[in-house]
Design a protein around this nucleic acid. Structure first.
Length: 782
DNA sequence: CAGTGAGCGAGCTTCCGCTTGACTT
């Protein structure tokens, strides 16, 4: 039994630290928080000054039991959880649960897992900081109050009440997406004409050259652009002036959780959850430092390792020592930036995580490298026939510096113009030959829809959410069906081009695809309706500055200037009044939008939310005739659907005619578009539009799927309703709607199974059901 | 697997942050 027990949050960290501290220290992990507010009845005694009721969650009982035992048998317990607010609270909960005296128990902290940092921490223990703990309790209690008081209001006031939720973080995240969508819907694009001139000639060395110059600003109309081109007819062009300016680019800071998620999304196309999963793997295998961090700081040991790596691989002049500071004030900096543990490992063996690792390696090494040096040249070109001038610019890289390994991407990358190339060497007063001059119509664009990663960036800027919650928050708002990630097809748009060539102007119209988006976040109708409701009744909590404001108060609690229950009480009184007022006065929300009157029946048509999602309704339930209903397509929304689009929806179900003497009927069901034939259902392929698809497309699909089904079937025992089927994990047994796993020893000759054997397997599985994730529910209705 | 759409109301849902598991039907 070791004399000292050190408790940290992460088990991977525990292993590393144990090696550093040696045999007198046993290092264990508590796996994050070990207690939380009780789930029933808020877990807060509001009348008793918001006294929290803490319980140990079921999945933490085991680790708590183990820690209790170890703590009892050891001379001294050291609390080494993270230094931030949450970490301090975890230490306090450990005191409470392990019966340690918070006034005397040793509390140590370090921001990096290096030998000097840890040894230094052990030499300078402090005591638990109760002010900081109280700031965390206030944070936790406020979040519980907001979430658990508003969510039930939604259950009462929304006509669709399936597990709706609201919270300080998630509701604001949805609001951002809803408002961006409306901004895009209300955006009217303005077109301008941009002039580009293409020149040919000889450079100062007599070499043939060609380059491009930009026109004088943008023209508002085609007429203005044409007038300018007319003015250029017969003109001579001369280089009037050449300016050369030096420039430089600096590397970005090393990765935090948020910037890692953004770059992995832009450069590798990963979702934020995929990035975090892979980063976790790299962390557990000891390849990178902790991946949930808001710090851009690198340890001194890391900095000198990086320096060494740069100097040996690239040479001394590529190194530049840098110390980055956090822009974000809400950062709590309990850890280092995300970096490779060993810089000498330029890659990893595992193919899944390799790309992400190499990204981290490059970003880290670039952050300590020299600036890239540029030379920007701007040549002004005089037009003899008018007072305007053209300008050509070029950029030359004089010294690559950090660009040798890494270039940060930007969200609007595909929308910016192509990289500027170099400009050929020109002389002042040199004359140039115009090959052609073009005025091209360009359209202004609305702000782009959020990607998962750009939403994280925005949330971080607003100080909302933490590194450990970015990915789960994005999952939650999609799971609640407030937001969905999807692609959007572009639409064709015509644009005009005026060309001046050989002193003649020609006009033509071309077409481009515009507005196509990939993996963007769209609000659902539900998301919009819930957001509008919350904005109306809970504008304080929905305010983008709300979190920043309460964070200031948490800071005051942490520095001992404010008492936590006072802060919570000041928040609670007006908030709870809002809750009661809403329960009493708010109408039940249906999200109705009238579209007009049905020409055929004279009945009103509305778009609205139904129990199963957005739909169109013709007529009302009071009418003698039942109303007609149609479900909106996945890409349509109550807010933007037109009358024509709505009427189009009533064309389903469609009878396509007969195949093998039986009708083929196409419709959209719970699982998407399908065809029905001979009492069987066949999902339509993605590219098949149920509104236009024809029989000759669907019939082969039916035939094909039928044989596929046959191939999947190994054996059928008709009477017992037992099937032996081929699944993605190999053969399995199916009886009724339930599947049963075939034992390993019989799986190779599944085709030879007899009825009796199959029955025996089913009985076996029933008697010893496969273990499921322990469902902590009390009772569940079947 | 492939329907529904009102209102009634039993019985249910819900937050944010800290950490990893145990698993395929």
């Amino acid at each position: 039994m070791a004399k000292n027990l050190v408790i940290v949050e992460s088990p991977a960290k525990a292993k590393t630290i144990e090696k550093i501290l040696g045999k007198d220290f046993e290092v264990k992990s508590c796996f994050g928080h070990i207690r939380d507010l009780e789930k029933d009845d808020m877990g807060i005694d509001i009348a008793n000054n918001f006294k929290p009721k803490y319980v140990i969650p079921e999945d933490k009982e085991k680790v708590v039991k183990e820690l209790k035992k170890l703590a009892k048998d050891t001379d001294e317990v050291w609390l080494a959880t993270d230094e931030d607010r949450e970490g301090e609270a975890i230490s306090w909960h450990l005191c409470e649960v392990l019966n340690l005296d918070p006034k005397t128990t040793k509390r140590i902290v370090f921001h990096e897992i290096t030998k000097p940092a840890i040894e230094n921490a052990v030499q300078h223990p402090r005591k638990l900081d109760m002010d900081r703990v109280n700031a965390q309790q206030a944070r936790r209690i406020l979040d519980r109050i907001v979430g658990f008081e508003i969510s039930p209001v939604l259950w009462r006031k929304m006509s669709m009440r399936n597990s709706l939720s609201a919270g300080r973080v998630q509701s604001v995240a949805v609001r951002l997406i809803v408002e961006r969508e409306r901004e895009i819907n209300n955006f009217s694009s303005v077109s301008t004409f941009k002039v580009e001139a293409y020149f040919t000639g000889k450079d100062i060395n007599g070499k043939s050259i060609s380059f491009k110059a930009d026109g004088p600003g943008k023209f508002k109309t085609a007429e203005d652009a044409e007038k300018f081109l007319e003015q250029c007819v017969g003109a001579a062009y001369t280089v009037k002036d050449i300016q050369v300016k030096p420039g430089k680019k600096s590397p970005a800071a090393p990765f935090t959780t948020s910037t890692l998620q953004q770059e992995a999304s832009r450069k590798l196309g990963y979702s934020v959850s995929k990035t975090m999963l892979l980063a976790q793997k790299l962390y557990e295998s000891g390849n990178i430092t902790y991946m949930r961090t808001d710090s851009v700081n690198l340890s001194d040991t890391a900095v000198s390792e990086i320096e060494k790596a740069i100097k040996t691989s690239f040479g001394d002049k590529y190194h530049q020592h840098r110390k980055f500071k956090n822009k974000n004030e809400s950062a709590q900096e309990a850890h280092e930036a995300i970096r490779p543990t060993y810089m000498e490992n330029t890659t990893v063996d595992d193919s899944d995580t390799r790309k992400l690792y190499e990204l981290i390696w490059k970003r880290t090494i670039a952050s300590q490298m020299a600036d890239a040096e540029l030379e920007k040249t701007i040549a002004k070109i005089d037009i003899s026939t008018n007072h305007e001038e053209l300008s050509a610019s070029g950029e030359v890289l004089k010294f690559d510096g950090f660009l040798k390994v890494y270039m940060e991407s930007h969200d609007d990358e595909d929308e910016t113009e192509e990289q500027e190339g170099s400009l050929p060497p020109l002389a002042v007063k040199q004359s140039l030959d115009l090959k052609e001059m073009k005025a091209t119509e360009r359209f202004s664009r609305p702000a782009p829809r959020y990607t998962e990663a750009s939403l994280v960036k925005k949330l971080e800027e607003l100080g909302i959410g933490r590194p450990s919650t970015y990915a789960p928050t994005i999952t939650t708002i999609q799971k609640r069906n407030y937001v969905e990630k999807r692609d959007k097809e572009g639409v064709k748009r015509d644009f005009r081009i005026l060309t001046l060539k050989a002193d003649k102007i020609t006009k033509l119209t071309d077409a481009e695809n515009t507005g196509a988006e990939k993996s963007k976040l769209f609000p659902t109708d539900l998301g919009m309706i819930v957001t509008d409701f919350l904005n109306q009744y809970f504008n304080n909590v929905m305010d983008y500055g709300f979190t920043a404001k309460i964070e200031e108060e948490f800071d005051e609690i942490a520095s001992g200037k404010k008492v936590w229950n006072t802060m919570i009480s000041e928040f609670y009184s007006p908030f709870h009044k809002d809750v009661e007022n809403t329960l009493e006065n708010a109408e039940r929300v249906k999200g109705e939008r009238p579209l007009g009157v049905d020409a055929a029946s004279g009945k009103p048509i509305v778009a609205r939310m139904g129990r199963y999602g957005p739909m169109i309704q013709i007529g009302s339930v009071e009418d003698e005739e039942k109303p007609r209903f149609a479900k909106l397509k996945a890409t349509q929304s109550i807010e933007t659907i037109t009358m024509d689009e709505a009427m189009e929806l009533f064309k389903l179900p469609r009878n396509l005619g007969q195949f093998e003497d039986t009708d083929v009927i196409v419709n959209i069901g719970r699982f998407g578009p399908y065809a029905q034939h001979d009492k069987k259902f066949y999902s339509l392929k993605k590219e098949m539009d149920p509104y236009t698809v024809e029989l000759d497309e669907v019939a082969p699909l039916i035939a094909e799927k039928r044989t596929a089904k046959d191939e999947r079937t190994i054996k059928i025992f008709e009477k017992e309703k037992i099937q032996i089927l081929k699944g993605p994990y190999g053969p399995y047994i199916k009886q009724g709607l339930k599947n049963y796993k075939i034992p390993k020893e019989k799986i190779d000759n599944a085709a030879d199974l007899t009825v009796e054997e199959a029955k025996a397997i089913i009985e076996d599985v029933k008697a010893n059901p496969p273990k499921k994730k322990a469902p902590p529910r009390k009772k569940k209705a079947e």
